[in-house]
């Protein structure tokens, strides 16, 4: 297959070292060295998706920016992606351009959201996206470079640079890359992408604007109810508790097996956690999260952490050993940004 000519500006450099330094000098990197985006590397990246360079992957209305396949490919090379990762990067870029994700908020907000990307389906195994030990890193090229490519597109194409259009007060390490796969091989549950409308044999990414992962301990209980009681207690006042964002629960090996042994489905987990993460208005007022002084009835007037049980996403992922799991608060509120699932086209 012959692809159309690349139209991006070209910069001559003497050698790879000079190329890397030019990328730093131009402000094209996230602070780490990059792979020089030579035309042959960029063409290989495009060939992996069979997309023409001028193909519009998505349009960010809030920025009036068209993101073309050529620019995605250049940034994927910079990030260190292999060409076979490119369809996953493209799907993730489509997802952050979806109006439901609503780019401007999570891209810019002082609350410092990262783009959490969950990869499901056959592609996750094919390109070795880690779903096990050291889930959130380091150690796996696909996990670290796919998310990095997405962030570099946000930086270089959308203009989301720290201090200007990315105003994160604290940010977090997930803003470098924040990619996991679901452990579909060992999970007793429906995979996330199937719950969200795709077939098991399709591949997909789900993107969520998200805080960092919060690990919780339960090394005591041997029941689903015990583990999830600890989770709910840990989670109840996390994140933007007054904003009602979405959450991702990441249930790792030991907890996954214990909860599954008791026969709990993802739907049952969602209902249980939804019911046990509600806060009384009195507590929210006493702890300065809700405005005003506690009034009669506030002790029993409850506010759910999320709007609906469906705002709790669940994946099985993480190492086989260790009685730990995690919850990841989304950014802002569900009204401001929602998790979006897109097929990774073969």
């Amino acid at each position: 297959m012959v692809i159309a000519a690349l139209t991006s500006a070209r910069y001559p450099v003497a050698d790879p070292d000079e190329a890397v330094e030019l990328c730093f000098a131009r402000g094209w990197t996230d602070g780490l060295p990059v792979v020089p985006p030579t035309p042959d590397r960029v063409e290989a990246m495009l060939l992996a998706t069979r997309l023409a360079p001028a193909h519009q992957v998505t349009y960010i209305a809030h920025r009036a920016v068209s993101i073309t396949a050529e620019k995605v490919a250049i940034n994927a090379v910079l990030a260190g992606c292999r060409p076979e990762y490119m369809p996953v990067v493209v799907a993730a870029i489509e997802a952050i351009g979806d109006p439901r994700w609503s780019y401007h908020g999570p891209g810019t907000s002082t609350a410092g959201a990262a783009v959490l990307i969950v990869v499901n389906g056959p592609v996750a195994r094919a390109i070795d996206v880690n779903a096990g030990d050291n889930l959130f890193g380091p150690g796996w090229r696909a996990n670290l470079t796919i998310g990095r490519a997405v962030r570099l597109v946000m930086r270089n194409v959308c203009g989301s640079r720290p201090g200007t259009l990315d105003r994160g007060t604290l940010g977090h390490p997930g803003k470098l890359s924040y990619v996991i796969a679901e452990n579909e091989a060992e999970s007793p549950w429906l995979p996330l992408h199937v719950e969200r409308g795709l077939r098991p044999d399709q591949s997909a990414v789900t993107v969520m604007a998200a805080d960092g992962p919060h690990q919780f301990y339960n090394q005591l209980s041997s029941t689903a109810e015990g583990i999830l009681t600890t989770l709910a207690d840990d989670m109840r006042v996390s994140g933007n508790v007054m904003g009602q964002p979405q959450y991702l629960l990441v249930l790792a090996g030991e907890h996954m097996r214990t909860i599954a042994r008791d026969g709990w489905t993802k739907a049952m987990i969602r209902e249980f956690v939804f019911a046990r993460t509600q806060n009384s208005h009195a507590h929210l007022k006493r702890t300065q999260r809700m405005a005003g002084a506690p009034e009669p009835g506030d002790e029993s007037r409850m506010r759910p952490l999320v709007e609906s049980p469906d705002d709790i996403l669940i994946v099985a992922a993480g190492g086989r050993a260790g009685a730990f799991s995690a919850y990841v608060p989304g950014w802002g509120s569900r009204r401001a940004s929602q998790a979006v699932t897109k097929e990774v086209k073969p």
């Binding site: 690349l6 991006s8 500006a9 070209r10 910069y11 001559p12 450099v13 003497a14 050698d15 790879p16 190329a19 030019l22 990328c23 131009r26 094209w28 020089p36 985006p37 030579t38 035309p39 960029v42 920025r63 009036a64 920016v65 068209s66 620019k71 250049i74 940034n75 910079l78 570099l152 270089n156 194409v157």
Partner: peptide, 17 residues
């Protein structure tokens, strides 16, 4: 000698500037 490609885009018509 080698060449590298620009990963950025110039501001489009309709952009803030």
């Amino acid at each position: 000698m080698m060449e590298i490609l620009d990963p950025t885009v110039p501001p489009s018509p309709g952009a803030a500037s």
